[in-house]
Each structure stands twice: as C-alpha cells, then as structure tokens.
Amino acid sequence: MPKTRLDWIVITIVALILGGVWIGLTRALPGQATPAARSPAPEIGHSAPDFTLTALDGSEVSLSDFQGQPVVLNFWATWCPPCRAEVPALQSVSESLAGEAVILGVSLQESPSTVSQFAEEFDITYPVVLDQSGQASLAYRVRSLPTTYLIDERGVVVEVFSGSLNEPLIRTRLDQLSGQ
C-alpha cells in the first residue's frame, strides 16, 4: 500500500500515461463506430425489412420506395391511446420536413374504413398503410404499441422507440441523422 504523497503522485502520473496510451490503442476504427448495413432485421444496425402494403388511397406502398431519405416507421392502431397521443406530433413533423424525411404509419390489423375515419379526424396527411394480415408487424416483431423505427437514408435501422414520441424528440433525431 503506498504511504507517502510522492508514492501516490507517481501512481497518478503512471495511471494517466498508461490510461492515455490505452485509450489511443483502443480507439474506434473507421466504420467501427457506425454499424454497417447487414442482413434485413428489425434491429439497430441492420437493413430495415422491406414490405409492400396497401395505402388508404388504394395504392401499393413499399418501404424501399423511400430509400434515400430518413423514414420514421410508426406502428400504431386507432384503439391505442398513446398512439392517438403522438399523431399530432408525427403530423407536425411530417408537414415541416416534407421532402427531407418521411413519416410512414403502419396501421395494425384494422379495417380501411376505421383507419380512414381516424385519419380524417386527426387530419393525417402522411402516408398510412394497412397491415391487415399483420405481415409487417410480424416481420418487425412489434410487441407493444406504438413502436417506432428510425431508419436512415441508407435503409438501416438506427433507433427503436417503444411508447409515445413527441415532436422535439423526432425532430432532434432527424436533425442528427441529416447532420451525419
């Protein structure tokens, strides 16, 4: 056990030097800090699984249609209170970032008429697709609602949120993505 001040000063200096060298040796290599696109999976660092579903207007919409811009992929249902709570925030972000990022709502196993009525009530203008068979929610292993995936312009999942989002959170995350 060191006893004098000098002993401790020597230990402190040695720790500082060794620690600095260790930090230098274990630096993140280029590309190591940012996950590269891997096989499709609903997991951070992986390509977001693609799907094609029918939109409210009857057109076919695929997730891959939006490659090249960040996508906020939001799984929701009209009967889910936290989903209803976050709709105004999603709509507001969608309006302010038109052309820069996409909000894509995936309605879980509900009838087109129920979802259309809800979209009208909440003035939703961002694309909403109908996952009537549950294929997309199964592919994304959605366990609770709402669940939202933040997907970058390469189509890679960068963050997964369980629970209601608010506008500043979505905006700051999208700003971070565009700043990368």
Binding site: R5, W8, I9, T12, A15, G19, G20, I23
Partner: peptide, 18 residues
C-alpha cells in the same frame, strides 16, 4: 473514466502524508 481515475488517485495523493 480516465479523468475520474486520475482525480481519485490525486485525492489519495493530496491526503497522504508528505
């Protein structure tokens, strides 16, 4: 962590007898 480590060790040095 290195900053905390050095501060903690310096704390020992400061309080140790000369």
């Amino acid at each position: 962590a290195l900053g905390v480590l050095v501060a903690a060790l310096a704390g020992f040095a400061w309080r140790a007898p000369a």
